[in-house]
Amino acid sequence: MNRRVSLKEGLKYQGGGPMLSWLLHRISGLAILLFVGLHVISSFFMQQTGSDLATNLNIIYESWIFQILVTFIVIFHALNGLRIAILDIWPRFLVYQREALWLQWFIFIPIYGLTIFILIQRNLSGG
């Protein structure tokens, strides 16, 4: 039997919170790359050709529901990256990795909550 570990087998490993945050970091990184890439391309085509596809893409990006998703991805990726960088610079804090994860969510929730509040408030008031 070969040693290959399938994606399904790997995802079934019970790594818990730290492994999930690593997975989410990877997925959010790819999502940011995709979002920024498509945004640049659609803006370019909208200016150059004024195509309907590019305009529709921009409408999706600018919708408040999409922005709620994007802000989640960006804020999570930034805070998680900051946690990893801090732990990499000061390895003695790696003993507190679980506490660092809790602290990360403790910081994330009010920032993200405030962002959602502002987004919804603006859209309900038609701003």
Binding site: G15, M19, D88, L94
Partner: peptide, 26 residues
């Protein structure tokens, strides 16, 4: 090593594996 921490959680001797890797990186 991408500081995933599976190693630290799996160690039956409770070695702070990721910390040791971090110290080697430093």
């Amino acid at each position: 090593c991408h500081t995933i921490f599976n190693c630290t959680d799996a160690c039956p001797r409770e070695i702070q594996v990721t910390k040791a890797i971090g110290e080697v990186k430093a």
